[in-house]
Each structure stands twice: as structure tokens, then as C-alpha cells.
């Protein structure tokens, strides 16, 4: 049980996907303009990560022992198709949920965080439950990063910023400071 809590905290805060591994920077730069959108994007992220984790576990347990060199290719193809199928199912059964997550799902599939989660889970040899907790933690971390950034950017929009710092340059510098802050979590539970 203690191990599961540690996996969750580690994935969410200590080794935050955005600020520690630089994963998912494209949506981070693109979607972090408004808090609401950021929250929705985060929700969609958690969803895809969980689907990925389950899929990767199935592949790792039943198929890949027989063909290890196909790992990367099968991860990409199978995860993309499973997300597509889940998306179509949601569209049919819950149009409301689809409207909320909808347009983000295909975008997220090509996000490096997804592939990295599958590979990381494999390298660490997580079992089904550990993988699930890891995916939820990672998703929570991504959501946290997105919402933090969005709230800061909403404030920055109202302030007087020098002409040359406008746009992505400033976002990166803010992300650096946030990343510094997140490094403070490295001391949790007596270090990594």
C-alpha cells in the first residue's frame, strides 16, 4: 500500500511529467491560456493515460514477451487505436462527455507523455495496479502543471510585459521558476 502512495506522489509531484521530464510541452504551451480549458485538457489527459496504462499492461503481459523488438511499434499503433475506439464509444453513449473531452483526445494520443508512460511502466516492471496508480498520478501532475501555468498566464495577460518577452519566451521562463519550485519536492520521503 505504501508503495502505491509513493508511486502516486512521485509521479504527480517529485517527478512531475512537465517540469521534470519536459513531457507534454506542446499542449502545455498551446492550451495553458485559460484555466477552464486547462482543467478539461487535464481531465482528458488522465483518461488517455489510464487507457494507455491498461493497454500497455495487456501488451506487456500477453504479447510482447514473444516479440520484444516490436515494443515501440505496437505501443504506438495499439494505443492510438484503443484511444480512437474509446473515443467513438464515448461519442455514442455520452455525447456530453465527448463534447468536454472530444477534441483533445486525438491530440493527446500523439503527446510524448503517453508513449513515455508506457515505456516507463515497462522499464520499471509495474504490475496492473501500480501501473494504474502511476497513470493517475502522472495525469494529476500534468493537470496541476497546466492549471498552475494557466492561472499565472491569466495574470500575466493583465500586466505590462516588455515587448521582447511577450509570448513563448516568458512562458518558458515562468515554467523554469515553477520547475525550480517543484524540485523542492525532491526531499519528500528522504529523497528519490
Amino acid at each position: 500500500m505504501n508503495g502505491l502512495v509513493w508511486i502516486f506522489i512521485s509521479a504527480m509531484l517529485v517527478n512531475n511529467f512537465t517540469f521534470f521530464y519536459f513531457l507534454g510541452l506542446c499542449p502545455f504551451m498551446g492550451i495553458s491560456g485559460r484555466v477552464e480549458t486547462a482543467l478539461r485538457m487535464g481531465g482528458a489527459n488522465v483518461f488517455v493515460l489510464v487507457v494507455t496504462s491498461v493497454t500497455a499492461w495487456v501488451l506487456n503481459t500477453f504479447i510482447l514477451p514473444y516479440a520484444p523488438f516490436l515494443r515501440l511499434i505496437s505501443f504506438i499503433v495499439v494505443i492510438a487505436s484503443v484511444v480512437q475506439i474509446v473515443e467513438m464509444t464515448i461519442k455514442k453513449f455520452s455525447p456530453r462527455l465527448f463534447r468536454e473531452l472530444g477534441m483533445f483526445l486525438p491530440l493527446i494520443t500523439t503527446n510524448c507523455a503517453i508513449l513515455y508512460l508506457a515505456i516507463f511502466q515497462t522499464n520499471r516492471g509495474y504490475d496492473f495496479l501500480e501501473g494504474l496508480v502511476f497513470a493517475i498520478g502522472a495525469g494529476a501532475g500534468l493537470t496541476l502543471a497546466l492549471v498552475l501555468m494557466a492561472s499565472i498566464r491569466q495574470q500575466v495577460d493583465l500586466s505590462d510585459v516588455p515587448e521582447i518577452a511577450k509570448g513563448s519566451a516568458l512562458v518558458f521562463l515562468i515554467a523554469g521558476v515553477l520547475s525550480l519550485a517543484f524540485m523542492g519536492f525532491a526531499g519528500l520521503f528522504g529523497g528519490i
Binding site: 517540469f19 519536459f22 519566451a169 521562463l173 521558476v177
Partner: peptide, 17 residues
């Protein structure tokens, strides 16, 4: 460390702008 990556690209973009 990771923050350095963000700072470096941030300052490169500043210089470019």
C-alpha cells in the same frame, strides 16, 4: 537540472525576439 532547460530556451527566445 530541469529548470536550466526552461531558462536556457527562454533566454534564447528572448535574444531572438
Amino acid at each position: 537540472l530541469p529548470p536550466g532547460g526552461f531558462f536556457t530556451i527562454g533566454f534564447i527566445l528572448l535574444a531572438r525576439n
